[in-house]
Protein backbone atom coordinates (compact mmCIF):
# COMPACT_ATOMS: atom_id res chain seq x y z
CA UNK A 1 0.00 0.00 0.00
CA UNK A 2 1.38 3.38 -0.95
CA UNK A 3 0.60 5.48 2.07
CA UNK A 4 -0.06 9.21 1.86
CA UNK A 5 2.19 9.78 4.82
CA UNK A 6 5.01 9.00 2.44
CA UNK A 7 4.23 12.16 0.50
CA UNK A 8 4.27 14.48 3.48
CA UNK A 9 7.07 17.00 3.87
CA UNK A 10 10.40 15.48 4.70
CA UNK A 11 11.62 15.44 8.27
CA UNK A 12 15.22 16.01 9.09
CA UNK A 13 17.15 12.79 8.68
CA UNK A 14 18.95 11.66 11.80
CA UNK A 15 18.73 13.74 14.92
CA UNK A 16 21.88 15.13 16.37
CA UNK A 17 20.89 13.92 19.83
CA UNK A 18 21.67 10.30 19.02
CA UNK A 19 25.21 10.30 20.35
CA UNK A 20 24.17 12.26 23.43
CA UNK A 21 21.33 9.90 24.25
CA UNK A 22 23.53 6.87 23.70
CA UNK A 23 26.18 8.32 25.97
CA UNK A 24 23.63 9.17 28.64
CA UNK A 25 22.26 5.63 28.57
CA UNK A 26 25.78 4.20 28.74
CA UNK A 27 26.51 6.49 31.67
CA UNK A 28 23.35 5.26 33.42
CA UNK A 29 24.48 1.67 32.91
CA UNK A 30 27.90 2.44 34.32
CA UNK A 31 26.29 4.09 37.33
CA UNK A 32 24.23 0.96 37.93
CA UNK A 33 27.34 -1.18 37.62
CA UNK A 34 29.07 0.83 40.32
CA UNK A 35 25.85 0.94 42.34
CA UNK A 36 26.00 -2.86 42.31
CA UNK A 37 29.62 -2.85 43.48
CA UNK A 38 28.92 -0.29 46.19
CA UNK A 39 25.75 -2.08 47.26
CA UNK A 40 27.59 -5.33 47.85
CA UNK A 41 30.35 -3.48 49.72
CA UNK A 42 27.88 -1.63 51.95
CA UNK A 43 25.80 -4.72 52.61
CA UNK A 44 28.74 -6.86 53.66
CA UNK A 45 30.26 -4.00 55.64
CA UNK A 46 26.97 -3.46 57.47
CA UNK A 47 26.52 -7.15 58.20
CA UNK A 48 30.05 -7.26 59.56
CA UNK A 49 29.34 -4.28 61.79
CA UNK A 50 26.28 -6.01 63.19
CA UNK A 51 28.24 -9.16 63.89
CA UNK A 52 31.05 -7.25 65.58
CA UNK A 53 28.69 -5.13 67.70
CA UNK A 54 26.84 -8.19 68.92
CA UNK A 55 30.03 -10.20 69.31
CA UNK A 56 28.73 -12.85 66.97
CA UNK A 57 30.78 -15.37 65.09
CA UNK A 58 32.06 -14.19 61.72
CA UNK A 59 32.62 -10.56 62.65
CA UNK A 60 36.06 -9.23 61.86
CA UNK A 61 38.14 -6.11 62.00
CA UNK A 62 37.43 -4.31 58.71
CA UNK A 63 40.54 -2.28 57.87
CA UNK A 64 43.36 -1.94 60.41
CA UNK A 65 43.69 1.51 61.99
CA UNK A 66 45.44 4.05 59.75
CA UNK A 67 45.60 1.51 56.94
CA UNK A 68 43.66 3.82 54.63
CA UNK A 69 44.99 7.36 54.73
CA UNK A 70 42.67 10.28 54.11
CA UNK A 71 45.06 12.43 52.10
CA UNK A 72 45.50 10.40 48.87
CA UNK A 73 41.80 9.68 48.48
CA UNK A 74 40.83 13.30 49.13
CA UNK A 75 43.46 14.59 46.72
CA UNK A 76 42.00 12.31 44.08
CA UNK A 77 38.60 13.79 44.67
CA UNK A 78 39.87 17.33 44.30
CA UNK A 79 41.61 16.28 41.09
CA UNK A 80 38.37 14.91 39.70
CA UNK A 81 36.60 18.13 40.67
CA UNK A 82 39.18 20.18 38.78
CA UNK A 83 38.57 17.99 35.74
CA UNK A 84 34.88 18.93 35.92
CA UNK A 85 35.88 22.46 35.05
CA UNK A 86 38.31 21.51 32.31
CA UNK A 87 35.73 19.26 30.65
CA UNK A 88 33.06 21.96 30.84
CA UNK A 89 35.64 24.36 29.41
CA UNK A 90 36.11 22.04 26.43
CA UNK A 91 32.38 21.90 25.76
CA UNK A 92 32.00 25.66 25.99
CA UNK A 93 35.01 26.23 23.76
CA UNK A 94 33.79 23.95 20.99
CA UNK A 95 30.39 25.62 21.16
CA UNK A 96 32.16 28.92 20.51
CA UNK A 97 34.21 27.41 17.70
CA UNK A 98 37.27 28.08 19.80
CA UNK A 99 39.13 24.93 18.80
CA UNK A 100 42.42 25.80 20.39
CA UNK A 101 40.84 26.18 23.82
CA UNK A 102 38.84 23.02 23.28
CA UNK A 103 41.96 20.98 22.55
CA UNK A 104 43.81 22.46 25.54
CA UNK A 105 40.84 21.75 27.83
CA UNK A 106 40.46 18.18 26.63
CA UNK A 107 44.18 17.62 27.01
CA UNK A 108 44.04 18.91 30.56
CA UNK A 109 41.06 16.71 31.31
CA UNK A 110 42.93 13.64 30.13
CA UNK A 111 45.90 14.78 32.19
CA UNK A 112 43.70 15.01 35.28
CA UNK A 113 42.46 11.50 34.57
CA UNK A 114 46.02 10.25 34.34
CA UNK A 115 46.77 12.02 37.61
CA UNK A 116 43.84 10.28 39.30
CA UNK A 117 45.03 6.89 38.08
CA UNK A 118 48.55 7.72 39.23
CA UNK A 119 47.29 8.72 42.67
CA UNK A 120 45.15 5.65 42.87
CA UNK A 121 48.08 3.38 42.12
CA UNK A 122 50.04 5.27 44.78
CA UNK A 123 47.19 4.80 47.25
CA UNK A 124 46.99 1.09 46.49
CA UNK A 125 50.71 0.61 47.12
CA UNK A 126 50.40 2.75 50.25
CA UNK A 127 47.43 0.89 51.72
CA UNK A 128 48.13 -1.01 54.86
CA UNK A 129 45.64 -3.60 53.69
CA UNK A 130 47.31 -6.78 52.50
CA UNK A 131 45.97 -7.92 49.17
CA UNK A 132 44.72 -11.48 48.81
CA UNK A 133 43.87 -12.13 52.45
CA UNK A 134 40.40 -11.07 53.45
CA UNK A 135 36.96 -10.09 52.24
CA UNK A 136 37.52 -6.36 53.02
CA UNK A 137 40.69 -6.27 50.93
CA UNK A 138 38.96 -8.18 48.15
CA UNK A 139 36.18 -5.60 48.11
CA UNK A 140 38.58 -2.68 48.36
CA UNK A 141 40.82 -3.71 45.49
CA UNK A 142 37.92 -4.72 43.28
CA UNK A 143 36.31 -1.32 43.74
CA UNK A 144 39.54 0.54 43.06
CA UNK A 145 40.42 -1.68 40.11
CA UNK A 146 36.99 -1.20 38.54
CA UNK A 147 37.29 2.55 38.97
CA UNK A 148 40.74 2.68 37.39
CA UNK A 149 39.40 0.72 34.42
CA UNK A 150 36.44 3.07 34.01
CA UNK A 151 38.62 6.14 34.32
CA UNK A 152 40.86 4.76 31.58
CA UNK A 153 37.83 4.16 29.36
CA UNK A 154 36.62 7.70 30.00
CA UNK A 155 40.06 9.05 29.05
CA UNK A 156 40.06 7.04 25.83
CA UNK A 157 36.59 8.32 25.00
CA UNK A 158 37.62 11.93 25.54
CA UNK A 159 40.72 11.31 23.44
CA UNK A 160 38.63 9.74 20.69
CA UNK A 161 36.25 12.68 20.62
CA UNK A 162 39.22 15.04 20.68
CA UNK A 163 40.62 13.36 17.59
CA UNK A 164 37.26 13.63 15.88
CA UNK A 165 37.17 17.31 16.84
CA UNK A 166 40.63 17.70 15.32
CA UNK A 167 39.24 16.18 12.15
CA UNK A 168 36.65 18.94 12.13
CA UNK A 169 33.60 16.86 12.96
CA UNK A 170 32.47 19.07 15.83
CA UNK A 171 31.86 22.78 15.94
CA UNK A 172 29.35 25.30 17.25
CA UNK A 173 26.53 23.73 15.23
CA UNK A 174 27.28 20.20 16.37
CA UNK A 175 29.12 19.75 19.65
CA UNK A 176 27.55 16.35 20.34
CA UNK A 177 30.75 14.38 20.53
CA UNK A 178 32.37 16.66 23.06
CA UNK A 179 29.16 16.81 25.08
CA UNK A 180 28.97 13.02 25.00
CA UNK A 181 32.54 12.85 26.26
CA UNK A 182 31.56 15.27 29.00
CA UNK A 183 28.66 13.03 30.05
CA UNK A 184 30.97 10.03 30.40
CA UNK A 185 33.59 12.13 32.17
CA UNK A 186 31.12 13.60 34.64
CA UNK A 187 29.94 10.07 35.33
CA UNK A 188 33.49 9.11 36.25
CA UNK A 189 33.64 12.06 38.63
CA UNK A 190 30.27 11.25 40.17
CA UNK A 191 31.22 7.62 40.69
CA UNK A 192 34.32 8.61 42.61
CA UNK A 193 32.38 10.51 45.28
CA UNK A 194 30.71 7.49 46.94
CA UNK A 195 33.94 5.56 46.47
CA UNK A 196 35.79 8.28 48.36
CA UNK A 197 33.17 8.32 51.09
CA UNK A 198 33.08 4.55 51.48
CA UNK A 199 36.79 3.86 51.42
CA UNK A 200 38.52 7.04 52.52
CA UNK A 201 36.04 8.40 55.05
CA UNK A 202 33.99 5.58 56.56
CA UNK A 203 36.53 2.90 55.64
Amino acid sequence: MEADVMHAPAAEVGRSRTLLIGSALSAASVLMFFAGLFGVYISIRQNNEYLVENQLEGGRLWFPDLAVQIAPGTMMMFTTWISLFTMAWAVQAIRNDDRRNAYVAMGLTILMGAAVINQMVFAITDFGVPIDRSVPSLLLYTLYGAYIAFMAIAMIFVLLMGIRALAGQFDSTNADGIQAAAIIWFTAVIVYMPLWYLITITK
Partner: peptide
Protein backbone atom coordinates in the same frame (compact mmCIF):
# COMPACT_ATOMS: atom_id res chain seq x y z
CA UNK B 1 19.79 -0.66 34.45
CA UNK B 2 19.75 -4.17 35.90
CA UNK B 3 22.26 -6.26 33.96
CA UNK B 4 25.27 -4.07 34.87
CA UNK B 5 24.62 -5.14 38.46
CA UNK B 6 25.02 -8.73 37.35
CA UNK B 7 28.34 -7.66 35.85
CA UNK B 8 29.34 -6.32 39.26
CA UNK B 9 28.55 -9.72 40.81
CA UNK B 10 30.57 -11.45 38.11
CA UNK B 11 33.50 -9.12 38.69
CA UNK B 12 33.61 -9.89 42.41
Amino acid sequence: FSLPILLANLLF
